[in-house]
Structure formats: C-alpha cells, structure tokens
Amino acid sequence: MLSRLAGLNRRPFDSLTEQEILALAISSEEDDARIYLAYADHLRDDYPNSARVFEEMAVEEGDHRARLIERHKARFGDRIPLIRREHVRGYYERKPDWLMKNQPVDRIRQAAEDMEARAHEFYLAAARRTSDADTRKLLGDLALAEKGHESLARRLGLEHTPDDVQAEEAQTARRKFILTYVQPGLAGLMDGSVSTLAPIFATAFATGDTWTTFLVGLSASVGAGISMGFTEAAHDDGVISGRGSPLKRGLASGVMTAIGGLGHALPYLIPDFTLATTVAIAVVFVELWVIAWIQNHWMETPWSRAIFQVVLGGALVFAAGMLIGNA
C-alpha cells in the first residue's frame, strides 16, 4: 500500500526504451480521446457547440494514435507492449471523466487545455529519449500539434463557439447555477431566517433567559436545516426539471436554512438579555436585506417587490413571536 502511494512500484521515465515510449504515447492518446468524448457526451444537451469542440479534439487524438501505431509497426512490429501512464513514475495523470462530469463548462475547457500542455511536455521529453530520426521527428511533430501557437481547445473554441454562442452557453450555465444552488439556497435562507423568528423571540420574551433562547434557536435552526435539506433532495431528482443534482440542492437548502436561523440565535450567547435581543434584531434586518438582494440580483425580482415581500413576512412572524412570548 505504502509503495503504491510513494510510487515505488513504478518505472522511472528515463528507464523506458524507445518501444515503451511509443507504447506509452499510444495508450495516452487512447485515454485522452475517450476523455474528450466523455466530455462531449456530458455537454451535448446543454452546450452542443462545446460538445462539438471535444468531439473534434477526440478525432485529433485518434489521428495522433494512428500515426504512433504506424511508427511502432514500422520500427518494432505489431505487438505493442502494455504500458500506461500509471505505470510510470512522475508521469502526468488524468482525472477520470466522472470527476469532471458536474464541473462548469469553463472548468472542463480549462482541463482540456491543461491536458494538452502536459502532452506537449511529454512529447518533448520523449523526443529527447529517442535516437531514431523518424521516431524523433514524429514525436516532435506531435509536440507541436499539441502545443501550436494556441491550444487546440482554444482554437476549436473560437471556431465553434463565437461570441453569440458563448453568451448563450454562459446564460445556460447561469441558469443551471441558479436552479441547483441559488433557488434552493434562497428558499432555505428565507425559511431559516423567517420561520425561526417566532420560536426564538417567543422563547426570549417568555423566559428572559438567553441560554434557553439560544438552545431553542439552535435546535430550531438545525432541525429546519435537516428537514429542508431532505425535502429538497427527495422531492425532485432533477432529471425532468433540469434542476441539477438533488444532493447539491439538498445541501444548499439545508445549509442555508441552518445559517438563516443561527444568525439571530447566536446573539443569545451574550449573557445580557437586552444586548442579545438588540443584536439579534439587528441581525434579522441584515438577513432580510441579504434575502432581498439575492432575489434582486439572481432572481431578477424588482427591489420594491423583494423588500416588500421579505419585510412583510418577517414583520408578521416577528410580531407573532412577540405576542406569543408575552402572552
């Protein structure tokens, strides 16, 4: 186990023969082509133009592989040794495509550019390790093909994703972000900030005890966060609605619900009741302003409507808490 982690069972790159270098290059091109096709499949529904970019990149990698196989056959015959990047110490690694599956499209494009840069460095190092003129020329040509004046991802991106298409894809990415994170997070923040007002302030005015109020606020916030998180994750798997991963939505909703309630529960850690209540009320105003800002910025709700909805709802719940607490 330790030897695997330390890479002690891997071959040093300098120990590879010319045939093994060609075999390593062939397997690497095969892996990269599969990764690009996986990216294309992932992006095809929402970003068809970017998907076309990765399909063409996969075709390019397939051409590289074919040229390498031809050179291997001419130099060493048909039998290609089995050697992969994980067998070589210090050789660059590729993240499996499933780790990139839920990443934003810009992150995937950047990953492709990083892949090319590392492949360029490999071919330069491989060319220095070969003595055969034709093999050295092929490896040098592939290094230039991977690098070029601009990366292949960027060149194909300019060809297939002009400004209007990139703007459309950016809008799609923003919409997915809103549906997956902002909308459930906002619902959670509103629920946590508003719904916990009544029990927290009712307890505060009924008991006058800051520690009891804090415990009630803590339990209400955590309980509401768990409830909202499970509800959000369970009621929609995101397949038909396109709202994204239920786990991500559930986490966004649950965490923001708990934060919304804890905001005005934590001030009751202050022993002085009057000071604690004053700070808690001030925090409530901040929370309501943040909710209104999110509605205006992300949901495009007019400021007047957002403020009216949040302030009215918060005032009604706060008044209910005070009346019940003083009953």
Rank of each mutant, 00 (worst) to 15 (best):
E29R: 02
E29L: 10
E30K: 15
E30F: 15
D31E: 15
D31F: 14
D32G: 14
D32H: 13
A33L: 06
A33N: 07
A33Q: 12
R34N: 12
R34W: 07
I35P: 07
Y36M: 09
Y36K: 04
Y36G: 15
Y36H: 09
L37C: 04
L37N: 11
L37Y: 07
A38E: 02
A38S: 12
Y39V: 06
Y39M: 15
Y39L: 15
A40H: 10
D41N: 14
D41W: 11
H42R: 06
H42C: 12
H42P: 00
H42A: 13
L43W: 00
L43Y: 01
L43H: 03
R44G: 05
R44V: 06
R44T: 05
R44Y: 04
D46V: 05
D46G: 09
D46M: 03
D46T: 07
D46K: 05
Y47E: 00
Y47D: 00
Y47M: 05
P48W: 05
N49C: 09
S50P: 02
A51N: 01
R52S: 09
R52E: 15
R52W: 09
V53M: 10
F54A: 02
F54K: 05
F54R: 04
E55P: 07
E55Q: 14
M57T: 03
M57D: 00
M57N: 01
A58V: 06
A58C: 11
V59M: 11
V59H: 11
E60W: 10
E61G: 07
G62K: 09
G62C: 01
D63P: 01
D63M: 10
H64I: 09
H64N: 07
R65K: 15
R65T: 05
A66V: 12
R67P: 14
L68F: 05
I69K: 10
I69E: 10
I69L: 14
E70K: 15
E70L: 14
E70I: 06
H72W: 01
K73T: 08
A74K: 05
R75G: 05
R75M: 13
R75H: 10
F76A: 06
G77S: 03
G77K: 06
D78N: 14
D78R: 07
R79Q: 11
R79L: 12
P81R: 00
L82S: 10
I83H: 00
I83R: 00
I83K: 00
R84N: 04
E86A: 08
E86M: 06
E86C: 02
V88C: 03
R89C: 00
R89Q: 03
R89S: 10
Y91S: 00
Y91D: 00
Y92N: 01
Y92V: 04
Y92E: 03
Y92M: 08
E93N: 08
E93F: 09
